[in-house]
Amino acid sequence: MMTDDNIGIDISKHFLDAHRLSDGGTATFPNAPGGFRALVAWLGRDVPARVVFEATGPYHRSFERAFSGKPPFVKVNPLQARRFAQACGTRAKTDAVDARMLASFGRALSLEPDQPVDGEQFDLRELFSARGALIKDRTRLINRLKTQTLALIKRQTKAQIDQLTRQLQALQHAINEGLRACPARARANAILRSIPGIGEVAASTILIEMPEIGTLRKKKAASLTGLAPMTQQSGKWQGKARIQGGRKSLRDALYMPALVATKHNPDMRDKYIAMLKQGKPKKVALTAIMRKLIELANALVKADRTWTPNPT
């Protein structure tokens, strides 16, 4: 039975600290499969309105994977949760206090539960994370190669770069196979790839980092990417609107597609040129194209149709 209760769970490397708002009940469980089973027993048969926890990198992944699609999960930004606690006048920061504040945060803002994530999506995220780490390693080696002078060291560095390149190709192949294994993702991937500027890597990044693609409102898609301009105004002062927040890896992945789109996507090219003629800086104009791309991608996936040029 669904209730209006709110559960907060503070996740650390070794423990899960839980707090239930309705009766103030608290409990601590190991952050391990045995602890997950004990948490299920503690939650009972009644389904709460939401279970709120912070994104804590590697510490929350096993927990999220074990429970995804069962209780109504809400994963929140740690900075937002901390600011909520400060706004409530809470200065202490312990695991028990954090769990209570997370439950209060969920109730006060009536946070909407996240969409359930299936096991394949978790596998894709892990592959994507490994790919990102290899890219950083290869970039570091390429930069180091530019300053090396000894032939032996240069040969070793080039060999390491070649090995990382092969590993990156293998990871991208595994990602592509994972996307093809699910008909819905395969169809969304085909739609994204039909948009001029969005290639293999950008399409897979969108599908992995924004699994909600195709279910979002226009402004929500831009906001999640961190590409929605935020107004800055106080009294008579009017500042420049700026982008902020959002999913950085997704935003980074849209940079090169936006550049390509300004040359090979007629609609985007016309929009880009028009903004430059209006005196907009190139960076601002390119950011607008990135926003248009993710909004277009969301709209096409929602409509289940590939991109076609506008008739002239």
Rank of each mutant, 00 (worst) to 15 (best):
M2W: 10
D4T: 14
N6E: 11
I7A: 02
G8S: 03
S12D: 04
S12Y: 02
L16T: 02
D17Q: 12
L21Y: 05
D23N: 15
G34I: 04
F36V: 09
A41W: 06
A41I: 12
L43Y: 03
D46G: 06
V52G: 00
H60E: 01
H60M: 02
S62N: 10
S68F: 07
V74G: 02
R82I: 08
G89L: 10
K93R: 02
T94S: 03
D95N: 02
A96P: 01
V97P: 00
D98T: 08
M101F: 04
F105V: 10
R107M: 08
R107Q: 11
Q115N: 10
P116H: 12
V117E: 15
D118M: 03
G119N: 11
F122N: 09
D123S: 13
F128Q: 06
G132D: 05
R140K: 12
R144K: 12
K146H: 15
A151N: 07
K154L: 13
R155P: 03
Q156Y: 05
T157G: 06
T157L: 08
A159C: 09
Q163S: 13
L171Y: 11
E177W: 03
A181I: 09
A184C: 06
R185M: 06
A186H: 04
R193F: 09
R193C: 13
S194Y: 03
G197W: 06
T205V: 04
I206K: 14
I208S: 08
G214Q: 07
A228G: 08
G235C: 12
W237C: 12
G245C: 03
R251I: 01
L254T: 09
L259V: 06
A261P: 01
N265A: 14
R269V: 00
R269H: 08
R269F: 03
D270C: 10
I273D: 13
I273M: 10
A274H: 14
M275C: 13
K277Q: 08
Q278G: 13
A288S: 05
I289D: 00
R291N: 09
R291D: 06
N298Q: 07
V301R: 12
V301W: 10
A303H: 13
A303D: 15
D304N: 15
D304P: 11
T306E: 15
W307Q: 09
N310C: 08
